[in-house]
Amino acid sequence: APIAEQGLGKGPIQISADALHGENKPQQQAVYTGNVVMTQGDVVVHADKLTVDAIAGKVHQATAVGSPVTFTMSAAQRHGYGDTLVYKPGKGEIVLTGNAHLWQKKNEISGQQVTYFLQTQQTAVTAAPGKRVQSIFYPAAAGRSAGGGRP
């Protein structure tokens, strides 16, 4: 089924960590620290620290920081890493920032910020000032269609 129907950006968000600090004032925020693993459907994020901002009890944004933060989406055969990962379930976006790399199978793109749109499977890459975006694509072997989603 197309990625979108596989519930990416939907369904329960499961989190495990060493410790948690939660606050209600001034806003609802939970900070998970230590061996943090966040899972939602097919998306799995590993980080050192995860901050979940909720609005009226609904997760608005999850910000992961790590050395680096890594994420995988096995169904879409994508994985990536970066210094910071911001996950917006409502918008269906994963934003990698700082030495950001994203693979789709063997094909790789990298830059200062990589944004992956879960619903459309599109990716936007921006480079740091004075630098350039890098992409590496492996042509499909003769006789086999390229296959896979568009980067």
Binding site: Q14, D18, L20, G22, E23, A30, A54
Partner: peptide, 28 residues
Amino acid sequence: WMTGVGLRASVKTQEVDILHEVRGAYIP
């Protein structure tokens, strides 16, 4: 829901700390 071992909660500031083995789920 969230589970773990060890708790410190401040009723005044509405802050909660779960100290170890944290598991949690946000159900949309």
